[in-house]
């Protein structure tokens, strides 16, 4: 072995080591960044949950770990003696969200099918109109609706909350489902026909199972956006029909000057946990639904 080759070996070794070090360093930075993202996203939510379980006497306790753990705040959240109607509001939100989601899906599925599968004139105009509708400012609707519902005695009724919600949930539904439908392997329907299925069978046995996840994901997104609505509900609902967002925003304590933070955090936790679980379970599909249309 000559000196030159030894030297070359050593150089190669050094190079390889440097590359490995760089790789390690890059990997380390990735982990640090990922940790920062994790903390930034989760810390405030964690603080809500910790406070929800903290005794009201220690509201401003700032120890990071749970202290003075109690379930009292959840009782307080449902307590109606200070004029809060959180339990009723939960039912209202489920009912309003359910009806809005159902109506939007039933109406929207046809439109999404047409937009994804058919060629026709004005297609882009219709798509543009639907997209524009989903970006529409709620305040532009509220004034005439306020006046109209006052005149016909609908203020504070469920329909006065459901109908305006459809204005932004339906476009979202059509938009998301269109993107999902465009991705589906429609050739399979034809193959099923070739294999001897009737048209109805092909639709029932091939298309429906394929479309079900897309429709289900769209339903979750639609329900979440209805569940989170605040602007219209804050103006058009009554004590009896208000959804949770309004109930939490107006949550009152025993004394007018004292904000019952721990009970509000408990209420917030109750409102949020089901959504977070739903979102985490269907994470992949939801992300696909959220980003559908922005790419591709």
């Amino acid at each position: 072995m000559t000196a030159a080759t030894t030297e070359l070996r050593a150089q190669q070794d050094r190079g390889r080591k440097a590359a490995q070090n760089r790789e390690k360093w890059a990997q380390g930075r990735t982990y640090i960044s990922a940790a920062v993202v994790l903390i930034w996203c989760l810390a405030p939510a964690y603080w809500m949950v910790v406070t929800a379980f903290r005794d009201v006497g220690f509201t401003y306790d700032t120890s990071i770990l749970p202290t003075h753990v109690t379930l009292d705040n959840f009782n307080t959240a449902f307590d109606t003696s200070f004029g809060n109607r959180f339990g009723q509001a939960l039912l209202n939100s489920v009912f309003i969200g359910g009806v809005v989601t159902l109506v939007s899906l039933v109406i929207g599925v046809f439109a999404a099918y047409a937009l994804a599968r058919l060629n026709f004139r004005f297609k882009y105009m219709v798509l543009g109109f639907i997209l524009g509708a989903s970006m529409f400012p709620g305040v532009a609707l509220i004034t005439p609706l306020f006046q109209l519902f006052t005149n016909i005695g609908w203020m504070g009724t469920y329909q006065a909350l459901i109908i305006p919600n459809i204005s932004f949930v339906l476009p979202l539904t059509v938009y998301t489902m269109t993107s999902f439908f465009r991705e589906m392997p429609w050739e399979l329907e034809e193959s099923a026909r070739v294999d001897g299925c009737t048209q109805g069978q092909a639709f029932r046995k091939v298309i429906m199972p394929l479309a079900a996840p897309a429709i289900f994901t769209t339903a979750i997104l639609a329900f979440i956006s209805s569940w989170n609505e605040f602007l219209i509900a804050s103006q058009l609902s009554s004590d009896a029909t208000q959804p949770v967002t309004v109930a939490i925003a107006n949550f009152a304590g025993a004394q007018p000057n004292q904000i019952p933070y721990t009970a509000i955090m408990a209420a917030g936790t109750i409102v949020t946990i089901p959504l977070v679980i739903l979102v985490l379970v269907f994470q992949r599909k939801i992300v696909a639904g959220l980003t559908a249309g922005a790419v591709k």
Binding site: L38, M48, N228, V244, I248, M265, T272, L275
Partner: peptide, 26 residues
């Protein structure tokens, strides 16, 4: 895990977010 975590702030209703930050900024 990170991809799941970023969905958490998104899933919390804005009204709850507002109350939560109101408390954080108390």
């Amino acid at each position: 895990l990170v991809r799941a975590a970023v969905l958490v702030p998104w899933a919390i209703p804005t009204a709850v977010t507002a109350k939560l930050w109101f408390f954080i900024f108390a």
